[in-house]
Design a protein around this nucleic acid. Structure first.
Lengths: 264, 264
DNA sequence: TAGTGGTCTAGACCACTTC
DNA sequence: AAGTGGTCTAGACCACTAA
């Protein structure tokens, strides 16, 4: 038999998913349910924590437990990297897609810190450099309004960015056109990319930094950017609040028997 | 100040991440920690549940609480759809990538059920049919050994598959070559695809079906497959245990100023 | 049957929010 | 100050696993 707290949680979960409890609705207070004979305070509390972990409600002290609104997913396609956006135009690549998506937005606040760090194993592999060698790290925290949505840290080889605007950080996202524009001006035009992504539960640090609600997973994105000759000029790691993003990719079905590039 | 259970959990989390507590190691029993003055049984229990939710340990009654091994990520690239695998060869596309990845594997057990269902809004949009119209659904549960790794449900328009092996289910994955081979034989050769993916916490049903450990997120994959003329011939929804997979995509940086297809 | 985690209670007290 | 969720305890009892 399912535990008492599970049954209580399931009753509410059903009503929330079914729409009888609309987003923003406040659930009964814990003490009310205790008086109504649903169990002790700890038991009811466990039920509420379960609902929170399932992303259905948020509890705040003094305020109550309310049904969480389901955020609209922002869809990320490769069009957000369009060269036109950062080469010809004035916009910055990773902001521009907000314009393209037609979403009303205030100009993103974005903190940025640049530092010289030793490459750990992930970064070293991403940039094709030895573990422990020095690379430049440009870390940003991107917010929508006051709410952080994701962090993004770009790593560069020193020889590619030494003396550019990237390592001499001005306020804002590496100046006009962003990091790709800087690389372009330095003679490194980006040509192709690889994105790898997977989901996991956040670390406690990430929960703090991104102000994640309880039970929110994160998607970790590894982006490797190459020039036409195959040189890696940027390796970036993004940590995204899972409920805010969806990723989309279009591709041709490979045919290794016909095209001789289908190897991967 | 952080709660007592959080501090206790953090102490263990640090040791696990630092490697002092190797995978498979058993943590002290709850009662031991109670005697050691770490708090009451409920308090220590909360700490252990937190570690479980963070994916660091698994608790089982009668057995104890042990450090969870970190599973190797299976990397999914588009090469798994290679036409050579299902058109020319004998293999089935979604099994073949296991061969390509060089991983030792036993032949996958895979349950399969085919049914005629009414399209919900997601499926309707995926297949470009009206909501509520009848479509074929082919649901599979894919396992590695006895452990489920993901579910995958393909939806087809009736006019594309009526009379084929897909709707006349034989044991195994739609016969030799899988679903794409069947479509190919019926005159629908797949040409390009779109994959969209996002992460979320599983429903209780999914926890059961995929036997997910506590705190494991899922990745939901929406795959749309087109013929050369742009007709949708398959829309598939996959639910993947997050810690077992990573997705990889390679693409050219788009340039809408130069190529006139960069709209997306 | 012994070992180990899981549930439940009643009540005390703490922490944050709103007024 | 009042309202509401969060933590903590001591102890009883339940549920599953392995020998």
């Amino acid at each position: 038999m399912a535990p008492k707290w599970r049954e209580l949680a399931d009753r509410f979960a059903e009503q929330i998913k079914g729409g009888q409890l609309a987003p923003g609705t406040q659930l009964p207070q814990i003490r009310e349910l205790v008086e109504a004979g649903e169990g002790s305070k700890e038991t009811v509390h466990k039920a509420y924590k379960a609902l929170e972990a399932e992303g259905l409600v948020t509890s705040t002290r003094g305020h109550g437990t309310v049904v969480r609104p389901r955020a609209a997913l922002k869809r990320l396609g490769i069009a957000r990297y369009d060269k036109a956006k950062w080469r010809d135009g004035d916009e910055v690549a990773f902001i521009a897609d907000r314009v393209a998506s037609g979403r009303a937005y205030k100009r993103n606040e974005q903190t940025q810190t640049v530092s010289r760090v030793e490459a750990d194993s992930v970064v070293a592999e991403g940039l094709s450099v030895p573990v422990g060698s020095e690379v430049y790290a440009r870390a940003r925290l991107v917010k929508e309004g006051v709410q952080p949505t994701h962090s993004l840290t770009s790593y560069y080889r020193p020889e590619h960015v030494e003396g550019t605007r990237i390592v001499d950080p001005t306020p804002g996202p590496a100046g006009r056109g962003g990091g790709y524009r800087v690389l372009y001006d330095a003679g490194y035009e980006i040509d192709h990319m690889r994105e790898a992504l997977f989901a996991r539960v956040p670390t406690t640090d990430e929960v703090q930094l991104l102000q994640l609600p309880a039970g929110e997973p994160v998607v970790e994105l590894h982006r490797t950017t190459y020039t036409a000759d195959g040189t890696v000029v940027e390796f970036a790691v993004g940590i995204h609040s899972a409920s805010r993003f969806a990723w989309e990719y279009d591709f041709k079905v490979p045919d290794s028997a016909r095209d001789r590039k289908g190897q991967e």
